[in-house]
C-alpha cells in the first residue's frame, strides 16, 4: 500500500525525459503506472527516481498512414478500443484493447507501458507479434525501429536501452474483406470473460459463412487468471482467406515461453488448407512443434496444462475468425 520514497520529475518533452534518464541512475519511467505502481506498493520494485512522462501529449496520437497504423506509446487501451480509426483499419487491435484488464485499467494503462513491462503472457505482446508490428524507440542519438520479433528478449526484458523511451507502435492494417462493413475484422475473446457468460460465443458473419470471407481476419482468444485478469495463455491469429481456403496465416501465442512467439508450424499447416473445423483442429496440434520443453507454469496453470490449452485458444481464435462456434 505504501511505496518507498523516490524522487519525482515530470518530463516536458521526450528529449527531457531521455536527458533525465541519462542523469539519474536507477530511474524508471512512469506512464499510466499500472505495471509499475503495484510493484512499488508491494515494495517489490524500488526505483530511486520516477520520470513522469504522462504529460507528453505527442505520444498519445493515433494515425493511419497507408497500410500502417501508428499508435503513440502513451495511448491508453481504452483510447485504442474507442478509436474509430483503429476499428476501421484493424479492428483486432480495438477488440484486444477493449478486453485488457478492467475498465479502470484500460483508462490508465498504455500500450507502451504494457509492452515495456514485457509480461510473457501480455495481450499486446501476443497480438502485436502475430501482427508483425514494429516499435519506435527513441534515445539520445535519435529514433530507431525495432521489429516486434526482436523486441521481447525474455520475461520482463526488452530491446529498449537503459536510456531509451518507447514512443510508438506501428501495426499493419488488415486488408479489407467484403463481408464486414468494409474493414478488417478482429475480435478478442476471453475464456473467463463476459463473452462466455452463460451463453457461449455468439458469432455472426452476416450469414455469409466461410465461403463468403475474403481477405484478412484477425482474432485473439485467451484464458485469463480469475483473480488478476492477466492473460494466462493467449493465441492470436491473422488468416488471409480466399474462397474458404487459407492463403496465408500468422499465429502467435503468449504465456508459454519467456516471450510471445510465432507458431510457424501451425501457420504452415494452415496455409493452403480449406478452413474446416477438422483441418483447424489438426493444424493447431502442430503448436508443440514451435515450443521448446521449458513451458512456464504457476499455481493456477501448470506447464502441462498451458501446453494443452494454448492450441485450444488458437483453435477458438480460428473458429471465431471463420465464424464457427466452438461449443
Amino acid at each position: 500500500m505504501y511505496t518507498p520514497e523516490f524522487d519525482y520529475h515530470k518530463a516536458g518533452s521526450v528529449a527531457e525525459a531521455i536527458a533525465l534518464l541519462i542523469s539519474h541512475d536507477d530511474a524508471r519511467l512512469l506512464a499510466g503506472g499500472h505495471s509499475l505502481l503495484p510493484l512499488m506498493r508491494l515494495r517489490l520494485a524500488r526505483p530511486s527516481t520516477l520520470i513522469d512522462i504522462g504529460g507528453l501529449g505527442d505520444l498519445k496520437s493515433i494515425s493511419v498512414h497507408g497500410d500502417a497504423i501508428r499508435i503513440g506509446a502513451l495511448t491508453t487501451h481504452g483510447e485504442i478500443a474507442a478509436s474509430h480509426d483503429v476499428r476501421h483499419a484493424n479492428s483486432l487491435l480495438a477488440e484486444v484493447a477493449g478486453g485488457i484488464g478492467d475498465p479502470q485499467v484500460r483508462n490508465r494503462g498504455t500500450i507502451g507501458g504494457n509492452i515495456a513491462h514485457a509480461d510473457p503472457a501480455s495481450d499486446w505482446g501476443t497480438v502485436l507479434t502475430a501482427l508483425e508490428a514494429s516499435v519506435e524507440v527513441q534515445g539520445a542519438n535519435g529514433s530507431r525501429t525495432v521489429a516486434i520479433g526482436d523486441f521481447f528478449q525474455g520475461p520482463f526484458a526488452t530491446a529498449v536501452g537503459e536510456n531509451e523511451i518507447i514512443t510508438a507502435v506501428t501495426v499493419p492494417t488488415l486488408t479489407h474483406h467484403e463481408h464486414d462493413t468494409g474493414h478488417g475484422h478482429g475480435h478478442g475473446h476471453d475464456e473467463h470473460g463476459h463473452d462466455d457468460h452463460g451463453h457461449g460465443h455468439e458469432h455472426d458473419h452476416g450469414g455469409g459463412g466461410l465461403a463468403a470471407l475474403h481477405g484478412e481476419v484477425g482474432e485473439y482468444a485467451k484464458m485469463s487468471h480469475p483473480a488478476s485478469f492477466y492473460p494466462v495463455v493467449g493465441g492470436a491469429v491473422i488468416v488471409n482467406v480466399e474462397n474458404s481456403r487459407c492463403v496465408s496465416a500468422r499465429v502467435a501465442v503468449g504465456g508459454l515461453v519467456p516471450t510471445p512467439v510465432r507458431a510457424r508450424a501451425v501457420e504452415a499447416a494452415l496455409t493452403g488448407q480449406e478452413l474446416t473445423a477438422d483441418n483447424i483442429a489438426a493444424a493447431v496440434n502442430h503448436l508443440a512443434d514451435d515450443l521448446g520443453a521449458a513451458i512456464i507454469g504457476d499455481v493456477f496453470a501448470s506447464a502441462e496444462y498451458r501446453r494443452v490449452v494454448a492450441p485450444v485458444e488458437v483453435k477458438h481464435a480460428l473458429f471465431h475468425a471463420i465464424g464457427l462456434a466452438h461449443h
Binding site: E191, M223, A293, A294, I295, G297, F300, A301, S302, A303, E304, Y305, R307, V308, V309
Partner: peptide, 24 residues
C-alpha cells in the same frame, strides 16, 4: 479450476506427459 477439471477428464491419457513435464 480449469486445470483441475481438465486433469480429471484427461487423467489417463496424459499421465505420461505429466511426468515428462515435471522432470523438465
Amino acid at each position: 479450476t480449469p486445470e483441475r477439471v481438465w486433469r480429471a477428464i484427461h487423467q489417463q491419457d496424459h499421465q505420461q506427459d505429466q511426468q515428462q513435464d515435471q522432470q523438465q
